[in-house]
Amino acid sequence: MNRKNGITVCIIAIIAVVLIYAQSGISFGDPVYQDMDQYFLLNGQVQTGGNNICTDVVFDFRAFDTLGEATVLFTAVMGVIVIFRRLMKGEEYEAE
């Protein structure tokens, strides 16, 4: 093992110790702040009419996030078309 690998292993070990120490004080399934999810569970079904609380949150309570995701997907398609346009097999790019 050369010197560079030794440094890498040391950094990974330090990060692992820090993360394990950080999660050792948290009890599983018992979040400290639960006002928000309790609100969603108690009022989401009545306010949005959907049984699936995940979809209620994604498409109603936090729909701006979903708008961003849809825009990211649209931008990804635009980027792929721009990059791969020159590589299309000898065919003209239809520009309608």
């Binding site: 959907g50 498409f59 729909a63 979903t66 990804a76």
Partner: peptide
């Protein structure tokens, strides 16, 4: 039920279907 949620579901479903298909076909 669900109000505008199913409409947005259909819209996002159409968009994801078309976007991933277009990416695959063009690549």
């Amino acid at each position: 039920t669900g109000g505008v949620i199913p409409v947005m579901n259909i819209a996002v479903g159409l968009e994801v279907l078309a976007a991933l298909s277009v990416i695959a076909v063009i690549m």
